[in-house]
Amino acid sequence: MSPSFTAAFPATAELVGGRQSARTIHFFATWLLLLFLFVHVAMVALSGFSKRMRAMITGYTRDREEGQ
């Protein structure tokens, strides 16, 4: 946490229990976000990577059974 910013807005540090507990929360939040990312990329890959990428970019899908 920025020593200058927490001087101006001490509540931002106190809300998360101080600098060191903020670092702990940040550490686990980072892993949770990474886990979220890996799981979702894996889901895209498992359900047909190019099909899903095409759908994401163009907004359309060519498969009739999926496109309804």
Partner: peptide, 12 residues
Amino acid sequence: CQRLLTTRTPAR
């Protein structure tokens, strides 16, 4: 940004 936001605020 910090000069504009945190000017004249004392250290904790």
